[in-house]
Structure formats: C-alpha cells, structure tokens
Write a protein that binds this DNA or RNA. Structure first.
Lengths: 157, 157
DNA sequence: TATTGTTATACTCTATAACTATA
DNA sequence: TATAGTTATAGAGTATAACAATA
C-alpha cells in the first residue's frame, strides 16, 4: 500500500491527524460506542439462541421475582407497557414464561417462569457469563467492573 | 397509600425484595441504561435545534477535519455508508455542510463545513456542554469523567 | 375517573443486497 | 474486478394515542 491508495482516513490515522477531540471526551459518544460493542457481542454469542438483550433481562427479572405484574416488570426495565406486550407474547409462545390472571384484579397478569423457561435461562448463563467476562477482562478485572457499574449508575440515576 | 394500593413492584422496592442481582452487575444492562439516560437528555436539551446525536458527531468530525471523504467520515463514526447518505443529505439540505466532487476520483465526495454550518455548530456548543456537564456533575467531576471514558474505551476497543 | 393490558402507528437506528458510475 | 455513493428494504427499538375491560 502506498499513499496514493490510502484514503484520507487512513492517511490521517497514520499521521494522527484526524481530530476527534470533542467526541473523544464526550460521554454520550463513548457510552454509545461501548453499548454498541456489547450489543454486537451479545448477538454474536447468544444470538443463535433466539434471545435478545431485552428477552434476557425479562427472564432474569421474572426468574428472580416470580409473580410480578406485567406492568411492573415493564416499569423495572423501563420498557413501555405498549411495547412490552409483544415481548411477553414472544416469550410465552416459546413456552418460557406464562401469564396468570390475578384472582382479585381481573385487569392484571402475573408473570411466572415455566420449568422450561427456567431450564433455558440456566442453559444460557455460561454463554452470558462468557459474554460479560470478555468485557470484564478488557477492563482489567471484577474490581474495575464494579467501579464502572458504579459510575454508570451515577449517570442513569 | 396503603399496601392494598401498592403494586408488587412498589411493595418489593419498599421491602428491598426485587431481585435484580444478575442485571445489576451486568455491563450490558448498565451501559444500556446510561446510554438511554444520556440520549434522553440530549433530546431534551438539543432536540429543539433539530439535531440528533449522529448529526452532532458528523458536524464535529467535519469541523475538525475539513475535506474527508464521505465514506471515511462514515467509517470513523461506525455508520454504514448506506445509512450515512440520508444523514449527509439532511445536513446538506440544511446548508450546514456541502459535498464537493473529487477532481481525481469522480466517485468520491469530500465533505466540508459551510460558514453557516460552522456558526451553527458553535451556537450548539453551550447547550452541548451543559448537557455533558450534567453527567460530569453526577459522576463527581472531570477526573471521574476521564476515568469513565478510559474504561469505556477499553470496552469498545 | 383511573388503571391494565392491548392495538395501531410512526419514527429512529441499524443491517444487507443490489444498483450506477467510476476506477 | 473493485470501490464510492446510492437506493430499497427489512428488522429492531422506542414513543404516543386510543380502546376495552375492569377497578
């Protein structure tokens, strides 16, 4: 490769000339980039299981808290009720969770894991940990991870 | 409010019973939440300027690097060429940037800021800094911001 | 009147294939 | 044959309004 075949970006990168100074110190930009990198890896590692990040988060919440109301799970995950319906539909059609009518308030559905759902979530965990560990490794260990989580919590709270 | 009116979530929150243990230490989940919080604030603070985060990032790159090729700017920002066309169209229609044909390779467009675009970007900066400063404040200062940026870079590199 | 779950809808962001004009 | 820009399209994710059933 010679200079004639190099794009402006390549020349600039080699010479350190591309000025990204504003973006490089932008929390919005860097958080977005990190989010995209993690999303990409999630899809690479867990995509063939037919599961998306939102699905995983719903299963995690229900597995740890059997019988929450549908709208409460949505609220915990900051998903709008309207958008949560199709998500719950999908997990229910796969037999991973089930809706149970409330006996005292007939508007309400309680969400429960099925045995199959619990087994499926368990089967996902090794891959999921591998996925998370990849980034913990890049950070330099669990202590760094905890520091990062704490900072991210400051941002979203 | 009494217990009878409280949702399962509210009861659980008050009693500290909602188990989010897996998600709370999930980098994917916490980064996503932070990204959504920052995006929301960007829209609140800068949305009435008719500018989205991607627009701002493009203007920042071109302002600091006049004459990069269209496809290079897309690559720098990890935006697919195909999706970048409409973005550039929008900024050009607003008169903020302009495409200039390469004299030596007629397939290529170089991207340049217009005077109006430069003035517009300048006018955005106070609001943008206010937006970023909000989160720097939550983190506890610029040093914390730098620590966070460094960690986020580990994740996306 | 207010709330839960739901439908419909729209808008953004992202991903892929294929076209055109150039090289 | 390969590349830059483009078009078309499809899939996610997100946001709002409005409805039926129920409180």
């Amino acid at each position: 490769m010679n200079n004639f075949n190099m794009s402006a970006e390549q020349i600039a990168d080699r010479q350190g000339v591309v000025d990204q100074s504003v973006l490089e110190i932008s929390l919005g930009f860097r958080v977005r980039r990190a989010q995209l990198a993690i999303l990409q890896d999630f899809q690479d590692v867990l995509g063939d299981q037919g599961i998306r990040p939102a699905d995983f988060s719903v299963l995690s919440i229900i597995a740890g808290n059997s019988g929450l109301r549908q709208s409460d799970v949505a609220a915990i995950l900051s998903i709008q009720r309207a958008n949560f319906v199709a998500l719950v539909d999908g997990l229910e059609e796969k037999g991973l969770i089930e809706r149970r009518k409330s006996a005292t308030d007939r508007r309400v559905y309680f969400l429960h894991m099925t045995d199959a759902g619990m087994a499926f979530l368990q089967s996902l965990m090794p891959k999921w940990r591998e996925h998370e560990d990849k980034f913990i490794g890049r950070l330099g260990g669990y202590e760094k991870r905890d520091q990062l989580i704490e900072m991210l919590r400051c941002i979203s709270d």
